[in-house]
Amino acid sequence: MGKDYYDVLGITKSATVDDIKKAYRKQALRYHPDKNKSPEAEDTFKEIAEAYDILSDPEKKDVYDRFGEEGLKGGGGPTGAGAGGPGTFNYTFQGDPHAVFAEFFGGRNPFDQLFGNRNGGFHEEMNQEDPFARFGMSGGGLGGLPRSFSSGMGGMGGMGGGTSLTKRQDPPVVHDLQVTLEEVFSGCVKKMKISHQRLNPDRRSWRTQDKILEVEIKKGWKEGTKITFPKEGDETPSNIPADVVFVLKDKPHPVFRRDGADIIYPAKVSLRDALCGCTVRAPTLDGRTVTLTTSDIVRPGMKRRITGEGLPLAKSPGRRGDLVVEFEVKFPESLSASARGTIFQVLPTS
């Protein structure tokens, strides 16, 4: 004797499509493991989902009505609803009962969506048999639901099973992407591996899938530039996948620091060179060396620009910013008495 799926949902064989949906709603809410903590709740919840999966599908229901569970699951039933000859239907419930629940209600947890319960269960003051009774919805109807409440839930179509709640896209998933100044100077492609959930063909269950995203870094891109890959976030029956966003961050450089399209090179010079003139050999990002000579007195923090030796401009890659030489004067740790006397005689007092 096979299972009586009508009995599982508490209905008769004459039940209409709406009766089946209302029965599933009532039984699924009653035995959902978030609410029902009895040891058999999980198995019953799965059995309810299987019953709904069969009875809500005209072809499966027709085979089940004529041949029972054995015929439905490979015991000699026909290959199609209208077939009269031998064959095997071979039905197996391979879905996730929680995914069936999520798809039916248009969200992962209607308890939270409807009542704001952060702990995933029912409020104590709710009717345990019919948690919707306090809204005037006993018996499966939605007529007693306040208009503002109904509007806020997208019409609550998923509660009746005919339509689902409007899917909303999850917030963007943001990752920092560190790049070196050399990579910004030349441009490059970074390969980033992500893991995200994707729905299986049944559109109810899902799997984890790895994917390589190729992030093109164009010449001169500024820190904070965002590169967006649409809908590469997790996919479930009740959501629109989030966008995955990479935000450029400058990786600290051992020599330079960045200021827009300019790069700053700190040049350390002695006090003597600062007073008497000096020559600085500054490196560039492409491996060359440029020479800067000054006969002026160098003051701490003084800057000199070497035009066109910085980073490419993002909007005009053919043009470049400047290499800015920022002088740092190194003062001696100590002076001999004779050196101190000489400086005292040579340098002006004001």
Rank of each mutant, 00 (worst) to 15 (best):
Y6C: 10
G10K: 14
K13H: 13
A23K: 13
K26V: 02
Y31F: 13
Y31C: 04
H32W: 15
S38A: 14
Y52K: 13
E59S: 09
G68H: 14
L72A: 12
G76R: 10
T79G: 01
A83K: 08
G84V: 12
Y91F: 09
F93S: 12
F105Q: 04
G107N: 13
N119C: 08
M126E: 06
N127E: 03
N127I: 03
F132D: 03
A133N: 06
G140K: 08
L142P: 02
P146L: 09
M153W: 15
G157P: 05
G158E: 06
T166P: 12
T166E: 10
D176G: 11
L181F: 15
E183Q: 15
S186F: 11
K190A: 07
R198H: 09
L199I: 00
L199K: 08
N200P: 12
R207S: 11
I217H: 09
I217P: 09
G220V: 12
W221S: 09
G224L: 00
T225N: 10
K226L: 01
P237E: 01
S238M: 02
S238Y: 10
D250E: 09
K251E: 07
K251M: 07
D259Q: 12
I263G: 02
A274S: 01
V280G: 03
V280K: 06
T284Q: 07
T284G: 02
V290W: 05
D296A: 08
V298D: 03
I306P: 01
E309I: 06
L311H: 10
P317I: 10
R320S: 06
D322G: 05
D322I: 13
L323N: 08
K330H: 00
P332W: 03
S338Q: 14
T342E: 04
I343Q: 02
S350V: 11
S350M: 14
